[in-house]
Amino acid sequence: MRRDQVLVFDADDTLWENNVVFERVIADFLRWMEHPTLDTAGRRAVLDEIQAANALTHGYGSRMLVRSLGDCVASLRGRPATAAEIDGINELAAVLIDHQVELVPGAAETLAQLSTRHRLFLLTKGHVEEQRRKIDSSGLAPLFEAVEIVPEKDDATYRRFINAYGLTPAASWMIGNSPKSDILPARRAGMNAVFIPNDHTWVLEQTELDRSDTGVLHLRALTGLVGHF
């Protein structure tokens, strides 16, 4: 166990459950949006492609999903979504606004223990107001030296973050569930990383990791951090 390191945490699906709620909305939408030739997997593929495009221009979060569902209706129906269909989408997505933050098991206790011997930061991407609401609801903010909400977590984001807080990359660890946003860009920026998989990680955040990369620690649960840091 090494002390006085920098631990940078992802938020959604690392400290609290998030995408599982999005997946429930998507499952309800796909059942509702029947198609004469496309099965559920085919309709999901259309939606995934639309979300990937919308994320580039509209960011992440519930607003992007609602927009994507409307665009998916237009794509599958060959016409703009009707007012009734938009109302149906908003009804399906209402749970995203009302959803209460559910911390992963041991999150608060783990962070509290780690904060006694390391510098902790929170780095999350998404819509600022939406992410701020979840952070405030979690009650975890006081445990972090700083909290940043960014539109994207790419190589440039991590390099800027390192410079902004005067971090030593070799003594810094990015901790998260997303290979695409948490692990790979942090490694390219020179940081170490801890990969904690979540069964509900968004499909567009998934990609293969090199298991031979000694700069990535693989853990089964967040609570496992206290045995390494």
Rank of each mutant, 00 (worst) to 15 (best):
E208Y: 10
T110Q: 04
L15Q: 01
A27Y: 03
I162V: 08
E85R: 05
A221F: 02
G224H: 02
V21C: 02
R63L: 08
R211A: 15
E208A: 15
R3T: 14
G190M: 09
L167A: 00
Q113P: 13
T214N: 15
E85K: 00
N163G: 14
N177M: 05
R188F: 07
D28S: 08
L217C: 10
L15G: 02
E102S: 14
N177S: 09
E23F: 14
T223Y: 08
Q113H: 15
V95Q: 13
V8M: 11
P80V: 00
L38E: 05
N177C: 08
L143V: 09
R187F: 08
E17N: 15
D4V: 10
V6E: 07
Q131Y: 05
Y165M: 05
M33C: 13
D71F: 12
D154I: 09
L114G: 00
R160D: 13
I135M: 04
L219K: 06
E23C: 12
G190Y: 13
L217M: 06
R44T: 14
A171D: 14
E208T: 13
L140M: 02
V8I: 15
A45R: 09
H99T: 12
F121Q: 00
L204I: 03
R24Y: 12
A156D: 11
F229I: 02
M191E: 08
V226S: 13
R63A: 10
A186M: 06
H35Q: 02
H127Y: 15
Q5P: 12
D182K: 01
I50L: 01
K180F: 10
S62M: 10
N192M: 12
I89G: 06
S68I: 01
N163M: 14
T214M: 14
F161W: 03
N18P: 07
S172T: 10
N90S: 12
D28M: 04
K125G: 01
E205P: 07
D12V: 06
L209E: 04
Q113L: 15
R44M: 14
G190D: 05
